[in-house]
Computed example of a mutant assay.
Amino acid sequence: MTSKIGIASNHLIHPTERFGTNFVDYIQRDYVTGLRQADVLPFVLPLGDPKDAKAYIESVDGLLLSGGQGVTPILYGEEPLAEVAETDIYRDQFEIALVKAAQEAGKPVLGICRGMQVINVALGGNLYQDIYKQAGATEKHNQYPTSWEIPTHHVTTTSGSWLNQILGERFAVNSFHHQGIHQPGKDLTVVAQSDDHVVEGIESANGKIIGVEFHPEMMRAVHPEFQKIFDYFAELVK
């Protein structure tokens, strides 16, 4: 039987020219394509009430959390700095509940960019609200307007980690963030960092929860090696 992966949706917060209201749940197609290429069946989970998280997780075999807005600082016990951009506490609370439900059910989770940060907060860790102001980051971690699929800075992985096994010790990635992991959550280990020591990858003690700060879904079509992240996750689920 084909494994089913739930992808937590984003939703439009502001009206747009095409969608006059903000009642639109969506997910970027690249995440879906990466999972399909890994021979699993993607299901988009619409943003909902945290109390429904357990039921959603019961209906799938694994969970993928995508990129998007920053995570609301008050959810990890801090007041927001002036540098904090747009946040969406409704999405934050729902995805945190999904992570906790997946962990309780023993189902694998993959977090990408914001998704990795949500995992960290859900498991009791916290974030740098701004890696430049608080963590002394010196590299360019938001490459816009450089094209999304182009790797722009390097990361180094921990020997023996899941990322090290599938992509090697050092490779270049793309980058679109200004928040980042500060203190890792319970049973999470940092497995990759940029040269200026920003966390770029994590793994749980049991290996079922993994995350990356970069965007493999954007790079995989032009740089096929990044499909290995989706393939690895699919094997965890199977």
Results as ranks from 00 to 15, higher is better:
Met1Val: 11
Ser9Asp: 06
His11Asp: 05
Ile13Phe: 07
Glu17Cys: 03
Arg18Asn: 08
Arg18Thr: 10
Phe19Leu: 10
Thr21Tyr: 06
Asn22Lys: 08
Phe23Trp: 08
Ile27Leu: 11
Asp30Lys: 13
Gly34Val: 03
Asp39Gln: 15
Pro42Gly: 08
Leu45Asn: 08
Pro46Ile: 04
Gly48Asn: 15
Ala55Tyr: 15
Glu58Ile: 08
Gly68Cys: 05
Gly70Phe: 00
Val71Met: 13
Thr72Val: 05
Tyr76Ile: 02
Tyr76Cys: 02
Tyr76Asn: 01
Gly77Gln: 04
Glu83Thr: 15
Val84Phe: 03
Ala85Lys: 15
Ala85Phe: 05
Ala85Cys: 03
Asp88Arg: 00
Ile96Glu: 02
Ala97Tyr: 01
Ala97Leu: 10
Lys107Met: 11
Pro108Asp: 02
Pro108Val: 02
Val109His: 04
Ile112Gly: 00
Gly115Lys: 04
Gly124Ile: 01
Gly125Leu: 07
Gln129Gly: 06
Ile131Leu: 15
Tyr132Met: 05
Gln134Arg: 12
Thr138Cys: 10
Glu139Arg: 14
Gln143Thr: 07
Ser147Pro: 09
Glu149Val: 03
Glu149Ser: 11
Ile150Phe: 08
Ile150Asn: 12
Thr152Lys: 04
His153Phe: 13
Val155Glu: 03
Thr156Arg: 14
Thr156Gln: 13
Thr158Met: 14
Gly160Asn: 06
Leu163Ala: 06
Glu169Thr: 14
Phe171Gly: 01
Val173Leu: 04
Asn174Ser: 01
Asn174Gly: 01
Phe176Asn: 08
Gln179Tyr: 03
Gln179Pro: 01
Ile181Cys: 11
His182Asp: 14
Val190Arg: 01
Gln193Pro: 00
Gln193Phe: 10
Asp195Tyr: 06
Asp196Cys: 07
Asp196Glu: 09
His197Gln: 14
Glu200Arg: 06
Ser204Leu: 07
Ala205Pro: 07
Gly207Trp: 12
Ile209His: 09
Ile209Gly: 09
Ile209Ala: 09
Ile210Cys: 05
Glu213Lys: 12
His215Val: 07
Pro216Cys: 05
Glu217Leu: 08
Arg220Ile: 10
Ala221Gly: 06
His223Gly: 05
Gln227Cys: 09
Ile229Glu: 06
Val237Phe: 07
Val237Gln: 08
